[in-house]
């Protein structure tokens, strides 16, 4: 009887040790890449942010992304200043966050077919539900998520002065690529 109780204790202990020994189940990407493009007949604008952070919960398929607007690099320095000061107003709204979950996630990161992610994008003071398609890849044993989608500048309350309406596309094309490694606190 006493032996049995001890062995139960040891079993429980071992179980817990096993649980704690594993990493949290979260994967992190510290240098994710997000590019956006605005193509019009007048002007092509593109910018890239190489310092996007993202985290996924390996078990539940939840995804969160955060980026600083000031980290976007443009070809022209003045364009970058205008972007931050007059369009996205990065001193008031310094970052963009996205929080979502892979649809019908069964705990397996299949690389065969693209998946859909539903989530909330919080940007320029506006919170909006968006759905986007992602492709899942496995590169050097690391999980890689990538994809592209379009956002409407009107949806996020970005105002363009009438004179510059021909220069800036109403629909901005966004591309992203995140490579994840296990997250340890």
């Amino acid at each position: 009887m006493k032996n049995q109780k001890n062995s139960t204790l040891v079993l429980i202990l071992l179980l817990h040790l096993g649980l704690y020994g594993q990493h949290s189940g979260n994967l992190i990407c510290r240098q994710g890449k997000v590019s956006f493009f605005s193509y019009t007949a007048v002007e092509n604008i593109e910018a890239t942010n190489n310092q996007v952070v993202s985290i996924v919960d390996e078990n539940s398929g939840e995804i969160a992304v955060q980026m600083l607007m000031r980290a976007f690099v443009f070809k022209k320095a003045l364009m970058e200043e205008h972007f931050n000061e007059s369009y996205v107003e990065s001193d008031t709204y310094p970052k963009l966050t996205f929080s979502g979950k892979i649809n019908d996630f069964d705990g397996v990161w299949e690389t065969t077919a693209p998946k859909f992610v539903d989530g909330i994008m919080d940007f320029h003071g506006v919170q909006k539900t968006i759905a986007l398609k992602i492709s899942i890849e496995n590169e050097n044993n690391n999980l890689v998520l990538s994809g592209d989608f379009n956002v409407s500048i009107d949806d996020f309350d970005i105002k363009v002065p009438p004179l510059l309406v021909p220069n800036i596309s109403k629909e901005i094309q966004v591309m992203f690529r995140f490579e994840y490694v296990p997250y340890e606190e």
Partner: peptide, 10 residues
């Protein structure tokens, strides 16, 4: 998850 990202922000 977002709270973790806040910590990990560049």
């Amino acid at each position: 998850l977002l709270d973790i990202l806040e910590k990990e922000s560049p």
